[in-house]
């Protein structure tokens, strides 16, 4: 029964690839991609997209993890509940609204886009860092204290490794949302692959549309895979085995 389904899956995938191939040919996507004048433009937009995502994720990871760690320290712990609530509220705000708000205060271009993406990506990372560190079993921290570890070492060697899985989940969510939102950044004048998608929609030019939509999708799927890979290298082996 199961082998039958595996074979069925293979047939379905083959059919999908076939249909995709025919669609690409018929819409002229292949011609567009091999056009010596169009190709560099698409490449540049792709790099712009990548640049926006990388820069904002870099800021967001640093700020989000720092905020999460600070909120679990003894001195700031009482603000953790309030901050969680604010983060939850912030996450309900739609991404397009965040971009629009950033634009109305900072103007158009790359800067407000990176700013909005950073702010929007901090939320899941900070939330998961906070939740991950809070969920570390107190026995482990006690054990660390008993071994005479200073607080900094407890954080680096006990709390962070144990919370890493949850933190990485937050990172993954942030990264995928970020890639999707960066596609919208075109509307506030930041370029990126959204340029091709929006132009394609308004001109009903399917080749341009697909030349934007397919790389964005692949980028998001690749990011998903990358976070999985990151988990393999960052989560300690013992914790992975215990799952």
């Amino acid at each position: 029964m199961n082998r039958l389904f595996t074979k069925l899956y293979r047939i379905i995938i083959a059919v999908i690839i076939l249909i995709a191939g025919v669609t690409f040919e018929r819409t002229g996507l292949i011609k567009l991609l091999s056009d010596p004048y169009e190709y560099p433009v698409i490449m540049e937009l792709f790099l712009q997209h990548l640049y926006m995502v990388t820069l904002s994720m870099l800021f967001a990871t640093i700020l989000g993890v720092t905020a999460g760690i600070l909120l679990t320290r003894h001195r700031f712990r009482r603000y953790a509940g309030v901050c969680m609530y604010i983060i939850g509220l912030g996450q309900t705000i739609p991404s397009l609204a965040v971009l629009a708000l950033a634009m109305s205060f900072l103007g158009i271009g790359m800067k407000p886009a990176v700013f909005a993406l950073t702010i929007y990506s901090i939320l899941p990372i900070a939330r998961n860092t906070l939740a991950g560190i809070t969920a570390v079993p107190p026995e482990l921290i006690d054990a660390g204290k008993g071994m005479g570890m200073p607080p900094m070492r407890i954080l680096m060697e006990v709390e962070l490794p144990n919370a890493m899985k949850v933190i990485l989940t937050g990172f993954r969510v942030a990264l995928i949302i970020n890639i999707g939102t960066a596609a919208l950044a075109y509307v506030i004048g930041a370029g990126g692959l959204g340029d091709l998608i929006f132009t394609g929609i308004s001109l009903m030019q399917t080749d341009k549309l697909l030349a934007g939509a397919i790389p964005v999708t692949l980028l998001a799927l690749f990011a998903d895979f990358l976070s999985e890979l990151l988990g393999l290298s960052l989560i300690s082996r013992g914790l992975r085995l215990s799952d």
Binding site: A183, I197, G212
Partner: peptide, 10 residues
């Protein structure tokens, strides 16, 4: 995982 704008496009 598929971004919303890309899904509309696809």
């Amino acid at each position: 995982t598929v971004p919303s704008l890309a899904l509309f496009g696809l």
